[in-house]
């Protein structure tokens, strides 16, 4: 049962590793990229580079939040403690992605409106952004208490359609068939599909303590 031991060891270790550095590293990274763009170190087209980098980091962090539950279910490694920080940091990158696009790239309110309405890949990207706003706003203990865990959990299921829309947004905006956006879409579909596998009822001889079936 080496794997169980390993999982237990990881679970024990993470008790000593707080989640707050995720915010710090995220915001630091965001600022660092902006500085690189400002100082001409993101190539000759820094607006586009920032847009891409912030967008890609959003997707990567959202994928990380999607990994948490299956990881716990299939390996008993529980990183749930970090999920809120990952999710909120993803949202901050998404906000930055949106602002770079709106303020630095399009540079006009009428253009922003027209693009959201006229371009399907922007419409769905914007929809993902809007879907994630209530999640970001309620990612705190007070909201969980006020809403109650059931309502709160239902709201936070919006993350599934939002991530899917984000991945399609990525696939839809590229020219040709580069593998990267399809890889993200595939991984996200797999991570969502895994949640459809029904949890097998106990049957295990020695269920590890605290391994509650999860979705």
């Amino acid at each position: 049962m080496a794997s169980v031991t390993l999982a237990q060891r990881i679970n024990r270790a993470q008790r000593h590793v707080p989640a707050w550095p995720i915010y710090l590293i995220g915001l630091g990274w965001m600022g660092w990229l902006f500085w690189l763009g400002l100082s001409g170190q993101l190539g000759p087209e820094p607006i586009n580079a920032l847009e891409r980098d912030y967008g890609l980091l959003t997707l990567q962090l959202l994928v990380a939040t999607l990994v948490v539950t299956p990881l716990r279910r299939f390996t008993n490694v529980s990183l749930i403690k970090y999920r809120r920080a990952l999710g909120v940091t993803a949202f901050l990158f998404l906000l930055a992605h949106f602002l770079v696009w709106a303020v630095l790239d399009l540079q006009s309110l009428s253009r922003i409106g027209a693009e959201i309405v006229k371009r399907p890949y922007i419409t769905i990207g914007f929809a993902a952004f809007v879907l994630l706003i209530p999640l970001a706003v309620t990612s705190n203990n007070l909201s969980i208490r006020k809403l109650g865990p059931l309502v709160w959990r239902r709201i936070h299921k919006l993350t599934y359609p939002a991530i899917l829309l984000g991945a399609v947004h990525f696939v839809w905006l590229v020219k040709g068939y580069p593998w990267e956006p399809f890889l993200y879409l595939g991984a996200i579909i797999a991570l969502l599909a895994v949640r459809l596998i029904p949890a097998r009822r106990p049957a295990r001889a020695n269920p590890p303590a605290g391994a509650a079936p999860s979705r």
Partner: peptide, 8 residues
């Protein structure tokens, strides 16, 4: 956008 104009 003509490239080379920086972030703004």
């Amino acid at each position: 956008r003509q490239i080379g104009g920086g972030l703004f």
